[in-house]
Amino acid sequence: MEMQEDADKSRVLVIIPAYNEEENIGKVIAEIRACAGDIEIVVINDNSSDNTAIVAKEAGVNVINLPHNLGYGGAVQTGFKYAISKGYEYGVQIDGDGQHDPHSMKDLLKVVQSGEADAAIGSRFLGSIQYRIPFFRRLGMAIFGRIVSWIIKQRISDPTSGYQALNQKVMKFFAYDNYPSDYPDADTLILLHFAGFKIKEIPVVMRERQFGKSMHTQLKSLYYIYKMFLAIFILLLQRKKIQRGENNGS
């Protein structure tokens, strides 16, 4: 039984995108280790100007250094490419800022490993939120949550969650063509649904980031709203094409 569990663990890769997280990354890695033992971890250092890469390396995990800053999505996508090239069957995305409580990881993994869904999305609204979300951001989440739920006919409470577990099929789908480089978000959930993947939301715990600034500022919130509406609109136009599987990268 123990052997079985080990074998399962070796097929999982934890992907941590990190930009200037030298104060948080060490703790995030330690926490993941405390929860999941010797699980494989890769940190995608998105051209940080601080010591993120060194801290991660000293913690003994794989580090991939992007020579230029690509943004959150571009970093996560690099993680998918790495996972596929190494033959991992499951990937878990966890932010490098300590917001995602690694204790929830096993719940997310269970869903994809059992085949219940292709993608497990960690929802702070089903689980618990241990910090204050700025009003406009919360409003945006609520609006886009409604829109996504309406389009995919499945209730999605937390469309902006970056805490996810994915199987290899989804990682392959995302690794080349279908992933936005800034914020993978509500639109990616719709894309997954159109492409025929099964999504399931799982309650998780999200906390206040430990140190440093969040990537979400007021101006970015406005851009985010524009980007989401446009992305969703374009997806709806391409719906048939996606369902026929024409943008599967090949």
Partner: peptide, 14 residues
């Protein structure tokens, strides 16, 4: 194209 090059360069370095 730039994004793909950056990603692949980083992966090759690794």
């Amino acid at each position: 194209q730039n994004k793909v090059l950056i990603q692949d360069l980083a992966l090759l370095r690794k």
